[in-house]
Design a protein around this nucleic acid. Structure first.
Lengths: 346, 346
DNA sequence: AATCTTAATGCACACGTGTGCATGCGAGGA
DNA sequence: TCCTCGCATGCACACGTGTGCATTAAGATT
């Protein structure tokens, strides 16, 4: 049988209330008494029961984290950021993976509700997008990371209740990547996209167009393809070599697509960056280890996790919080090359 | 204010005990009463309080999972397996990352103890190795995955208490890889190892030697190097090219090391698998996407997670369980080549 | 008709902790 | 000496649920 606060009380010859206060370092308890009780508790191997405490304080010091799958290195890094801040603030993390399976999602939300978590962070596009009413049932503050449901997260209505979000600035990232290619002398730049119904894809494409417009380069829909965000959509590169002219650079929806593109280009006998420059997106852990090391847009994933958790802590403290739009960073590696002549430079 | 079982009882005009039983589908309650109560509860949006329930049943339906870091794709896959089985069995997962930081580890164990988790799974070498006494304090069954502390997990003493383990058969994997290289005609095979104090490294090396002995090839310590298991230890390949003779194949401690080795070989102007065959270990997600796609030993990571969770479920049911040694599988891709002449074959 | 059996429901306690309020006690001032 | 005040501690209730046992009512049995 586990030792409870009453056992300690009996052993120390005081009431359980005194023990409770002594262990909480409540100044009401006299110094010597407190020290004695703490010694006794220590010796008896007493560990407070968080369950009972949660029942009376109505605070569990626990947050729920819902993700699509923990295997996605992107999500793993976000979760790491969350866990880091949570642990430092004395919070525990309930992890649930939805696998984009409705039954699982419903079950998860129900479980979090029953466990009375203090707050919830969701990094699972579908849950965030489709289950907002369900999420609200939890009755705890909620922060979504990179949710794909709103076109513009900053336009969130106040009547959306307690649902806030941290999202990456995809449009800015797309512009960053494209502007860099242009600065390297590229004029014919293709976009090898992701799923057309993803806001991330739409926004990256929008940034791409913005950069073209700024450089007075005409946008050509024929230079844009959609994919599924995985390696196999790299095959689509073939479709980008038009009879009229071929691109000198390809901006890819994400690193996985870029990796597929590199493989497809190699099979065509084209060399990167010799014949063609390629830019990815996300900066997954492997981006620096493939051949050639990939130039890409870095998303500060752990930082986004930390931001979300800090936001949640603020919400729990009933502070005012605002949604956050996180900017990316260009990481130049070896899959891109400057093709502008020295003449145009001087 | 949240609606409790008493509120439902009042609304339905019965006692709270009846509600409790009705919602648990206890046959003691008459069919019509039960249906009526369930309807009322549904309409009032009642969600049982798992905290209160846990307090009285002394079962939390929760397990703790301690890992080094969730960013490691290897661990992520293990966690996925655990989570999968846990969810299907009605268990929730508390995730904690230790980052090999003692303070964090102690804090984690304390937290799990206070939350009265029903069981614990540890996939963090250090925690498993150094904190067994600490772990025991939790007072719940414990399953370790790939713990590095025992030389031979099957020799576990029964007095070790409730600590069980699921470990990968590294020696068998090392033998599998080496035997394959030998079957491809290689006679001079180097081992580019990992940290010398890791049991995994020692066991893979032991398997390598076993395969050599079986093929009557002399073991030469000069053909073995240690590393840190990360990409940079691939640089060590240079040390393997002895004046006397150079290897035709390299067996690497893990895929990360192999990736480093591939890069280093390329810089030396050597082609894989043309000039040299390379075999990795682990089969990380990227192993199939690098250039050339890596021949490696597959560890069924998600399966190991599932096994560990099932073992834990058995322990919770007070069934007898035995430690498990999980075998690997050779995955042949394109980093290896058969160099035996057709003459010797016929 | 009286008693027994069975089915359905309520009562009351327990789980372990936190906390408002009452209580006791000693010291100091009138 | 009595009253007051402040400090340290104990009492008792609450949190929400599960469950052994008592209770009630209705039907069956003698």
């Amino acid at each position: 049988m586990r030792v409870s606060i009453k056992d300690v009380a009996k052993a120390a010859g005081v009431s359980h209330s005194t023990v409770s206060r002594a262990l909480a370092n409540n100044p009401l308890i006299a110094e010597p008494t407190r020290r004695r009780i703490q010694r006794v508790a220590q010796k008896m191997g007493y560990a407070p029961n968080a369950i009972a405490r949660g029942l009376v304080t109505r605070r569990t010091q626990t947050i729920g984290v819902i993700v699509t799958t923990i295997e996605d290195p992107f999500i793993a890094e976000v979760v790491r950021g969350i866990e880091e801040v949570a642990a430092d603030s004395g919070y525990r993390v309930f992890l649930g993976t939805s696998h984009n399976d409705s039954a699982r999602e419903v079950g998860l939300v129900k479980a979090l509700r029953e466990w009375r978590v203090d707050g919830v962070i969701v990094a699972s596009s579908r849950v965030g997008a489709l289950y907002q009413p369900l999420l609200k049932e939890i009755g705890a503050p909620i922060v979504l990371i990179n949710n794909q449901n709103r076109k513009s997260p900053t336009r969130q209505k106040s009547d959306a209740g307690k649902i806030y979000s941290v999202v990456f600035d995809d449009a800015d990232g797309g512009e960053l990547a494209t502007r860099y290619l242009i600065s390297q002398g590229h004029r014919v730049i293709a976009y090898l996209g992701g799923p057309s119904d993803y806001a991330a894809n739409r926004n990256r494409l929008a940034g791409y167009r913005r950069a073209l417009v700024a450089a007075h380069i005409a946008f050509d829909p024929a230079r844009v393809r959609t994919g599924n965000g995985r390696v196999e959509s790299g095959e689509q590169v073939s479709a980008l070599f038009l009879p009229a002219s071929s691109p000198t650079a390809i901006f890819c929806y994400n690193d996985m697509t870029a990796i597929g593109a590199l493989a497809a280009l190699k099979r065509r006998g084209l060399r990167v960056p010799g014949d063609l420059s390629v830019v990815g997106f996300d900066d997954i852990p492997f981006a620096g280890y493939i051949d050639p090391p990939l130039t890409t847009i870095h998303q500060p994933k752990d930082e986004m996790g930390r931001l979300a958790m800090r936001m949640l802590l603020d919400l729990l403290d009933e502070k005012k919080v605002a949604n956050v739009l996180v900017p990316g960073k260009l990481i130049v590696r070896e899959s891109t090359r400057d093709i502008s002549t020295t003449a145009t430079r001087s």
